[in-house]
Amino acid sequence: MEIWNNPSCSKCAAARDTLSEAGMTFTLRGYLDTPPTTAELDAVLDRLGAQPWDVCRTGEQAYTVLGMADWTRDADSRPRWLTAMVAHPTLIQRPIVLLDNGTAVVARDQATLDKLIANT
Score class of each variant (00 low, 15 high):
A75D: 15
V55G: 08
I3W: 03
G102Y: 13
W53M: 09
T72S: 15
A104E: 02
Q110S: 12
R16P: 04
E2V: 01
R73W: 06
D114S: 11
A104M: 03
R16V: 15
R73Y: 05
P95I: 06
M68A: 12
G30Y: 14
V106S: 02
T27W: 01
W53N: 07
K11A: 13
V65I: 12
T38G: 04
W4L: 14
V97I: 09
R78T: 15
S10Q: 10
G23A: 12
W71A: 07
D17W: 01
R78C: 04
L113A: 07
A87S: 11
A15T: 14
E21T: 13
P35D: 08
L66E: 08
M24G: 05
R108D: 13
T64K: 15
G23T: 10
T37H: 08
T25V: 09
T25A: 13
L19Q: 10
G102F: 12
S20M: 09
I117D: 02
I3L: 10
D114W: 00
D70M: 03
D46H: 11
A75G: 12
R47G: 01
W71R: 06
T90C: 01
P36M: 08
I3D: 04
L19A: 07
P7H: 12
N5M: 01
A50P: 00
W53I: 05
A22I: 11
T25Q: 14
T120E: 13
G23F: 14
A104R: 10
D46T: 14
L28F: 08
Q93P: 00
V86F: 07
P89E: 09
A87V: 00
P79S: 01
E2K: 14
E21G: 11
W53R: 05
Q51G: 00
A22Q: 14
A87G: 05
A22V: 12
T112S: 06
W81C: 04
L113H: 09
T25K: 15
I3R: 08
T58Y: 00
Q61N: 12
L91K: 06
R94H: 04
V97C: 03
L113W: 05
A87M: 01
R73T: 15
N119P: 01
V97S: 05
A69M: 03
S8Y: 10
I117K: 05
N5R: 12
D109P: 01
T72W: 02
I92C: 06
C12A: 02
A15I: 08
D100Q: 11
Q61A: 14
V86Y: 05
K115N: 14
L116N: 09
A107W: 12
L91M: 15
D100N: 11
M85C: 00
I96A: 02
N119H: 13
A69D: 11
V65P: 01
M85S: 01
T38D: 09
E2M: 09
A22L: 14
L41P: 06
A14K: 13
P89F: 10
V55Y: 03
T34R: 15
G49Q: 13
E21Y: 00
G59T: 13
T103C: 07
R94E: 02
D33M: 11
V44D: 02
T83S: 12
